[in-house]
Each structure stands twice: as C-alpha cells, then as structure tokens.
C-alpha cells in the first residue's frame, strides 16, 4: 500500500484523533494555567498552612510520573467515590501535572518583577489584591510567557499518554491502525509529524504572537 492510499484510507481517523488531541490540549492548558496561578500565589502566601498545601501539591505532581498520576486518577480515584469519565480523567491528569510545573514559573516570574514596582504600588495605597492584579501580574505574565511556550509543548506531548486509558486521541488512533495493518512506519510516522506540526507551527507561533501582544499592551514593544 502506498503512503497516499494509506492516508486515503485512514486519514479521517487520524484527523478525528488530531481533533481530540487539540481539544485535550486546550482544556488541559486552561486547567494548568488556573492551577499554576492558584498554586503559584498560594506558594507565596503568608499563612504556613496555605503555603504547605501548595508545596505538597507541587512536590507530589512534580515528583511522580504523569503516567502514574493518570492511572491513579483513572483507576484509584473511583474507589474514593470520584469517578471521572476517561476523557475528563485524561485532561485533568495532564492539566494537574503541568499546572504543578507552571506554579513554579508563576512564582519565579512574580518574584522577578522589580521591587520598585511593589513599593510604588504600596506608596499609591493600593490594596494587596489590586496591586497583584493591576501591577505585578501583568508584568509577571510578560516575564513567564516564553517559558510557558515550552511548557505547552510538554503539555501537548503529555496528552499522548491518555491513549493508554483509551481516550481516542491521535496516539490511540494510530495505535489501533498499527494493530490492524502493521503499517507501523506509516501510522506512527504520520502521528510524529502531526505532533511536530502542532508544536512547531501552531503552539510556538501562537505563543510568539501572545508575547508580542502582551509586550505591546505594557508599552514595551
């Protein structure tokens, strides 16, 4: 079978898998950003209890494998009475894992906003919440955006693991195709190229664009 015939026959399955992968990536990155922001801010809280919760969360999710977390959320969490549908379990696991890595980026970025900005906001009598939202966070976002670009590529790669709990993403589809046709080079090779295209020609340009927009909004471009 030529490669074109292969694409003709299995193209729609690969396409549907790709769409699931994109959907997973979008949902997981929204979850990861929310968790990263919350855990990153909690990590710097004054209360040791709040700080402790964030540290434990970050260390657990950074200290173990995504695959272990995925299996745990999918197979063990139901024993605690929380049953997640496999698609939900998939993006929740990926989002929670990358959120823990993102939390450290958020913390690092906030800490690297110049001290003078904090002092100026204090001098203007801003409340701590207003200071964070109006002065510190917008500058922190610009600082951490380049690292988030790398993190989102890691996230995209992480979504491939959800195929192992039978979410029908790109990885799952090509695994199935490989199982029935044994055309491994075509099936897995196509998936490799699709992932590469998603990472290099969608995520990276999108993040570059976002960096430019954010810098312009801060009047730095």
């Amino acid at each position: 079978m030529s490669y074109l015939e292969f694409l003709g026959q299995y193209g729609d399955r690969i396409l549907s898998g790709t769409l699931v992968t994109i959907l997973l990536t979008v949902l997981a990155s929204m979850l990861a950003m929310a968790i990263a922001l919350a855990a990153g801010l909690m990590r710097m809280a004054r209360s040791p209890i709040v700080r402790g919760v964030a540290v434990v969360y970050i260390e657990i999710f950074r200290g173990t494998s995504l695959l272990v977390q995925l299996y745990w959320i999918f197979f063990v969490l139901p024993l605690f009475g929380i049953t997640l549908e496999k698609f939900t379990a998939g993006f929740v696991a990926v989002g929670m894992n990358l959120g823990a890595y993102g939390a450290e980026l958020v913390r690092g970025a906030i800490l690297s906003v110049p001290r003078g900005q904090w002092e100026a906001a204090l001098a203007l009598n801003m409340s701590p919440a207003k200071r964070m939202v109006r002065v510190i966070l917008p500058q922190a976002v610009v600082i951490m955006l380049p690292s988030w670009g790398n993190l989102l590529i890691e996230l995209l790669k992480g979504t491939a693991l959800v195929a192992l709990i039978a979410v029908t993403d790109l990885m799952f589809q090509v695994k199935q195709i490989n199982g029935t046709t044994f055309l491994s080079a075509e099936a897995f090779g196509t998936a490799l190229i699709v992932y590469y295209v998603l990472a290099r020609f969608m995520i990276t340009p999108f993040m570059r664009w976002l960096e430019r927009v954010m810098q312009r909004r801060l009047g730095r471009a």
């Binding site: 790669k157 979504t159 990885m171 998936a191 990472a199």
Partner: peptide, 8 residues
C-alpha cells in the same frame, strides 16, 4: 523534542 516520548 517536540514529539511525545511514548510515540517515539
């Protein structure tokens, strides 16, 4: 670097 290890 930009493709999943499990796929590789």
């Amino acid at each position: 670097r930009s493709t999943p290890l499990v796929l590789q």
